[in-house]
């Protein structure tokens, strides 16, 4: 998958956890999950679990702790897809 394809799928994973739909529609690799998308930190594990299911991968929290913005999320997912 290309980074753009991962980003498109990632939007679907994130969508249930943000009320900032306008920002979600315009996310880029610098978008911060908590600061920009107003995602509550209590939902970060949900996003990891949903991403695991979406991409059929496993994400350890050792790696997941880097998933604070869209770009690093794509880095982690792309690495796991190799």
């Amino acid at each position: 998958m290309t980074r753009q394809e991962i980003l498109t799928e990632l939007k679907k994973v994130i969508a249930p956890y943000t009320t900032n739909k306008e920002m979600l529609a315009n996310i880029n690799e610098d978008t911060d999950l908590i600061r920009d998308l107003k995602i509550n930190s209590a939902n970060l594990v949900d996003i990891i679990i949903d991403a695991e299911a979406q991409y059929n991968i496993e994400i350890d929290y050792d790696v997941a702790d880097k998933m604070m913005n869209v770009g690093t999320c794509i880095d982690v997912i792309s690495e796991r897809l190799k």
Binding site: V45, D46, I48, I49, E52, Y61, A64
Partner: peptide
């Protein structure tokens, strides 16, 4: 239900 799943709580 999700909280009780090992794949969830093992990340916490």
């Amino acid at each position: 239900a999700r909280t009780k799943q090992p794949r969830f709580y093992s990340k916490i």
